[in-house]
Design a protein around this nucleic acid. Structure first.
Lengths: 227, 227
DNA sequence: CGGCGGGTTGAGTGGTCTCAAGACCAGTGG
DNA sequence: CCACTGGTCTTGAGACCACTCAACCCGCCG
């Protein structure tokens, strides 16, 4: 693990725009950032493991981090995927003190690490920080509830269509987006095996979706909405 | 909707033990409870609807409330089921201002209603209340993450076994539990059609689980854990 | 008695998983 | 320039799981 105390400009920009920190005033920001440490990790590196004592939470600055559970037979189930700006494990601040899932970098990534106890103390004093925490955790909750509803209501092609639409800048006409990560990661996010994602993409061809590498072209956004 | 301003003793006891309120000091408690209103609702009554402006959140005092989403074709997907002591929609305090799912009583129920704006103001002043909110929302988040992992890792009989075990008071030997609600509600909680739940129960017979009405008898708790 | 709601059971279907093989691509080293 | 290689993705075949639809059972109530 390569630790550097200094922030690159890009990473700093991501950090300041992260939902968790975006609304904070200067003093709160300084206090939080002074206790934070930055680390850059290689791909496939574990950041935390199910059952370990939870002494820190993280904010992704660059790259993607996958949160997942393991079954006894070793099968993995992705719980959520954290993009730059997302925090994770911050919901353990006032509840459990062991991590409840594993976190692994999906590619080389840089993270900001916040010490639990220190932030806990800050949150007790500073209502602004408490509010930021509530917002961050609420956002996660909404995301996971969406995820459950998606899993239970929609088939694989529909979930893929939903994902594409959620990343589509426009409301109609044609569009083109670029996947920010590997397809196998997307598959996990959507609760699919990689093969199922592949099949879902090819079944979307007949509604004008073409995929080459990480580029996804949508012929008619409106048509995709009717899936 | 039958509204009564007074709390029954039972409901009061549930309220005081609810995770959201349990850790609060007296002054915070009084302030929260003075702004709260109690209502008793018939079965199948909608408490909130997807898309409505979110001007209150609730704590279940008696009965069960089902939170679910609707697809365009009218299919329902349960997101979570709230038992006495659970709060719901409290995560909208500092984020969205419309409800993101529907809530419906599964049976006659009594709820405490908290005005969003009022609690928002309180939370800004009182770090104790903010902390209580963080705990409540975190608890929900953990629950929904568990739910996703369950859905993705386990088959219907395994999920049912997990549920039974989670309600089992003992670690080994035999046990008997009583479902606190209809089986169809449990089916929804576990992401199953009612028929699938029925089949899961009958497939668990060969590991010593017998079901009659709402009574579930487990011959060997340890054996159930190996499913 | 008939109707009704909740639950079970059966048959058939469709969706997704697993396993396995092959395609494609980028990087490497002859 | 061309094999070789490893990783990613795709495609196919088969099995399994859970869904739908339908019939039926049962306890309850008018």
């Amino acid at each position: 693990m390569n630790s550097s105390l200094k922030l690159s400009n890009r990473d700093r920009a991501v950090l300041m725009k992260a939902p968790f920190l975006a609304g904070l005033g200067n003093s709160a920001l300084v206090r939080l950032m002074s206790m934070m440490t930055i680390s850059t990790l290689p791909a496939r590196k574990f950041v935390m493991r199910e059952g370990e004592t939870a002494d820190a939470f993280y904010c992704v600055l660059n790259g993607y981090v996958r949160l997942f559970r393991l079954s006894r037979e070793g099968r993995e189930a992705d719980i959520m995927v954290c993009a730059p700006g997302d925090t994770f494990a911050e919901h353990l601040l006032f509840s459990d003190n062991v991590y409840l899932c594993n976190a692994q970098t999906a590619e080389p990534a840089t993270l900001a690490r916040f010490d639990m106890q220190a932030v806990r103390d800050l949150a007790q004093q500073d209502p602004e920080i408490a509010k930021a925490l509530i917002s961050a955790i609420s956002r996660h909750l909404v995301g996971t509830m969406d995820c459950i509803a998606n899993d239970r209501l929609f088939t694989a092609p529909q979930r893929v269509a939903n994902y594409i639409l959620s990343r589509c800048p426009v409301d109609g006409g044609s569009a083109s987006i670029r996947l920010p990560f590997q397809k196998s990661l997307l598959a996990g996010m959507l609760g699919l095996a990689p093969e199922a994602l592949s099949r879902a993409f090819s079944s979307l061809r007949r509604v004008g979706v073409t995929v080459r590498g990480r580029i996804i072209q949508v012929g008619d956004v409106q048509a995709l909405k009717n899936i």
